[in-house]
């Protein structure tokens, strides 16, 4: 059966950054199978179309959170959706972060811009159940202080190290200034026993993964989430190919051991 969008009602929304909002949705009747952090849904804006969006909240009580940045017709439609509106969801699709495989390791979570969205449920899980893991590090980079999503929540997470840095501080910012990779030098982790989770713009992912690898983190322990055009999310439309991978099926989260050679071929 080709999946149909399942109606979910928007129950709340909040502004994350000047062009990004998070929608909290609840099933109208039928509900989708549970999501794991890192997986995505095809989110349908009525009359506009569907886009892939990673779950940015997977509350225990049910419902889901999706964070959308206003960049195209569909994301604009979702951005404008408010409480009471209905969106269609298909999913969950793709691979997750696989936090459970990082047991005993130090955790290094690196987010660029709204790349924090798919990482947020992972961090929440690690904060809620820290026992199996070593030290948790959360590193966030953004353009300006206003572009920091979930800034207050980030500050509340109990971690070994939380670093937040911006490119352009503006008045009133007393925090760090610089690119997110600078924070790697301040985080607390043993590279040989670390699993890293990285999401953001592709050059930021490459720079971060290369730095982590140079510090000694094994490639298969650097998990990155990639973005490509997706139409079906079920492996049939061909749009999300990255070399041998169908990112809707084999991704979006893949290991740097696999990603490195693919991300360094131009226009692959």
């Amino acid at each position: 059966m080709t999946a149909l969008p399942v109606p979910y009602r928007v129950v709340a929304r909040w502004q994350e950054t000047p062009d990004t909002r998070t929608l909290r949705v609840e099933p109208v009747r039928e509900r989708l199978c549970p999501f794991v952090p890192g997986q995505f849904a095809m989110v349908h804006a009525f009359g506009r179309g569907e886009i892939p969006v990673s779950a940015s909240a997977i509350p225990i009580g049910g419902g889901l959170g999706f964070t959308v940045r206003r960049v195209g017709a569909v994301s604009e439609g979702l951005y404008e959706a408010g409480p009471g509106d209905t969106v269609g969801l298909r999913g969950p699709y793709g691979t997750g972060w696989e936090l459970e495989k990082a047991a005993c390791d130090d955790l290094v979570v690196v987010a660029g811009g709204i790349g924090l969205a798919p990482l947020r449920p992972l961090v929440r899980d690690a904060v809620a159940d820290p026992e199996p893991y070593g030290r948790l590090n959360v590193l966030v980079g953004a353009r300006t202080p206003a572009d920091l999503m979930a800034h207050r929540e980030t500050g509340l997470w109990r971690t070994a190290y939380t670093g937040v840095t911006v490119d352009r501080p503006g008045a009133g910012w007393s925090g760090d200034i610089g690119f997110v990779t600078a924070l790697l030098g301040r985080a607390r982790f043993d590279p040989r026993a670390t699993t890293a989770f990285v999401c953001g713009p592709e050059p930021m992912i490459r720079a971060t993964a290369l730095r982590l690898a140079a510090l000694g983190v094994p490639g298969e322990h650097i998990r990155v989430s990639l973005e490509r055009n997706m139409r079906c999310a079920t492996g049939h439309c061909g749009h999300c190919q990255l070399g041998p991978l169908l990112l809707c099926r084999d991704g979006p989260v893949i290991g740097w051991d696999l990603a490195e050679q693919l991300m360094t071929v131009r226009e692959l």
Binding site: M1, T2, L4, P5, V6, P7, V28, F46, G84, D85, T86, G88
Partner: peptide
Amino acid sequence: RLWSAERAADGTLTVRA
């Protein structure tokens, strides 16, 4: 055609294969 959907006056969404 994969599916079609109707939106009722109260915002209810009905999706049909």
